[in-house]
């Protein structure tokens, strides 16, 4: 443990504040009695799709394509997840199975 208890509480408070802010802000900016601009409604429709793309890349930011194993464990695990999800459409199976495949790959094969 590197943080003291007050430091830890402050860090958690920052995480709570950031999360609450992003969740409440739209409701404060666009109260029920006012009409929400079309542009904002458009963004509300398309951004959820774009942001998931952003988050997938964010998760993979530390992967090096130049150095061994050239992102192979990630690529294999992601292909497994996509395949299993298209096949069974079961969230738990896709997440659990994909994570297990990745753990086996990095612990036993690409050590």
């Amino acid at each position: 443990m590197t943080l003291t208890t007050p430091q830890l509480l402050l860090t958690i408070a920052a995480l709570v504040l950031g999360t609450v802010a992003t969740r409440f802000l739209p409701f404060l900016l666009f109260p029920p009695h006012k009409k929400t601009p079309h542009y904002i409604l458009y963004l509300g429709e398309v951004l959820p799709y774009a942001v998931i793309g952003l988050l997938v890349v964010f998760c993979l930011k530390g992967v090096s394509l130049v150095a061994a194993p050239h992102g192979l464990p990630e690529l294999i695990a992601i292909l497994c997840i996509i395949g299993v999800h298209f096949w069974k459409n079961n969230t738990l199976l896709s997440i659990g199975g994909g994570t297990l495949v990745y753990m086996l790959l990095v612990q036993y094969i690409f050590v």
């Binding site: 920052a14 995480l15 950031g18 802000l25 739209p26 666009f30 963004l43 429709e45 942001v51 988050l55």
Partner: peptide
Amino acid sequence: YALLLTLLVNARHLFYGIAML
């Protein structure tokens, strides 16, 4: 930094909020 990172990572929630207004 924790706050800024949270705002960034959770910025997508802004759009969920907009969709749930």
